[in-house]
């Protein structure tokens, strides 16, 4: 009986603390024609620079049907990422990006995880299948989310304070810095932020067959 009282008291004390840390930012990204933009990464960085990084959990970028899945993966800096090959052919995943240069020699199955220890955009490729392209966005802040098919992302569990919020997308026509917005996140209401962006056409190596690529005369 005594123990139960203590638990109730503890819960009563803890609830306001949890609530106090429960600010949210709802982000919406659309293109110039008003169509929702999926796979945009929205990052919130506390204006006071006070970042307390949690322990990063392992994330996964699969290779399925000779494509990276998901095409855009957002992770916290320091996150180990594995690249399981779920195809019945071998892949050789690599990146030349300054934020993480690596190469996973020709493999099947699950290779050792790669730790993404520097913030920035890491462009993935496969040396066997040149059309394969994927992105790992490495965030310096634990507060980030990726937009869904409706172009919406929800950043949750934010300590109430001011944030500089920015957005990145593989086809973004402007620099990531140009997307900065200042948002005051409080527990009283959900803060909202929206971008209308100009997306560059996706430039991808053609995967479709063509009769003209091979042979001579």
């Amino acid at each position: 009986m005594m123990l139960a009282r203590w638990l109730v008291a503890l819960f009563a004390l803890a609830a306001p603390i949890a609530q106090a840390q429960n600010a949210e930012i709802a982000a919406t990204v659309t293109d110039e024609r008003g169509k929702p933009v999926a796979d945009a990464v929205v990052i919130a960085v506390p204006s006071d620079g006070n970042l307390r990084l949690p322990r990063a959990r392992e994330e996964v970028v699969d290779q399925v049907d000779k494509e990276f899945l998901p095409k855009v993966q957002a992770v916290l800096v320091g996150t180990p990422v594995t690249f399981p090959n779920r195809d019945d052919v071998r892949h050789q995943v690599y990146s030349f990006s300054p934020a993480k240069r690596f190469e996973l020699p020709l493999y099947a199955g699950v290779p050792q995880a790669v730790v993404f220890d520097k913030p920035g955009v890491v462009i993935l490729g496969c040396n066997i299948h040149d059309w394969m392209v994927g992105y790992v966005y490495v965030s310096e802040s634990p507060y980030f989310a990726k937009t869904n098919a409706e172009g919406k992302a929800l950043l949750t569990d934010l300590p109430p304070r001011g944030y500089v919020v920015r957005m990145w997308h593989p086809q973004l026509g402007i620099s990531e810095d140009a997307t900065h917005k200042t948002v005051e996140a409080t527990r009283a209401r959900r803060a909202e932020v929206a971008w209308t962006v100009n997306l560059k056409p996706e430039v991808k190596i053609r995967r479709a067959p063509t009769g003209g690529q091979r042979g001579g005369y």
Binding site: P201, K204, I205, G212, G216, Y217
Partner: peptide, 24 residues
């Protein structure tokens, strides 16, 4: 015996042009 050169250009996601020239 012969030799050839070719060049390919993807104008859009869907449209691809290929040009070849050769001598035999």
């Amino acid at each position: 015996q012969g030799a050839y050169v070719r060049a390919g250009y993807a104008a859009t996601d869907a449209l691809y042009f290929d040009a070849k020239a050769g001598v035999r």
